[in-house]
Amino acid sequence: MSDALLKIQNVESYYGPIMAIRGVSLDVEQGQIVTVLGANGAGKTTLMKTISGVMDPEKGQITFDGVEIQGMEPHKVVAQGVVHIPEGREVFPLMSVNDNLSLGAYTRNDTANIEQDREMVFSYFPILKERRDQEAGYLSGGEQQMLAIGRGLMARPKIMLLDEPSLGLSPLLVQEIFEILRRLNAEQKVTMMLVEQNAAIALELAHVGYVMEVGRIVMHGSADELMQSEDIQNFYLGVQEEGVREERRWKRKKTWR
């Protein structure tokens, strides 16, 4: 297990006095897509922010590619090859699509390769090429999400941390974006860590899944195992067994409680 690309060990993070992450450990192997599922407030976003250095952990170790990155300044973490694609897109609204992409490559200096990567991004997201001179603030939600992912790719990341890429998008767009993520993983070998509330689509894409509740990892396994698990089916996928009466659902206890 020591050869994992990203290794998180017993990380604890606080928002002021509130403990948002209570000792989380997980591994992301090279080339994998790992998803972290969980409801609102489970600590998923905090976990992402702790990895990318926007928040500092109180305890624990985050090792990326053999380097300890916990508590590092965010721009140094990016330079290590960790790119965080934040929840809610966070594009630069008054700048053109092209400039947004250029900023994605801020940590790089290899101009020729940057242009090559820009073309690569355009080949995955043709709509961005069409809109390249438009201000990002005028793009639709889906296009902004594509821009956020494309901008992340411009850093040529070793790992992409995707925070809720499906947020606020139509089911059709979600399908489209997840298909592109799958292709990016298969064709460009981009390792991904994906935080999602939409468990069905996340498990379909991912190889490995973790389930987070109130700041703790409560379950983990391969995506297939999780999809088969009764708890996941009931509480995250919303599958109803035939003949089960409605009241049964809240009487049931999760096995990890």
Partner: peptide, 24 residues
């Protein structure tokens, strides 16, 4: 210029600027 763009970025969305690896 790269620095000029980074300045714009830091003023339009500081958090995203951090995520892009800009030393804000």
């Amino acid at each position: 210029t790269k620095l000029g763009l980074a300045m714009q970025a830091a003023s339009q969305n500081q958090l995203a600027a951090y995520y892009m690896g800009i030393p804000v």
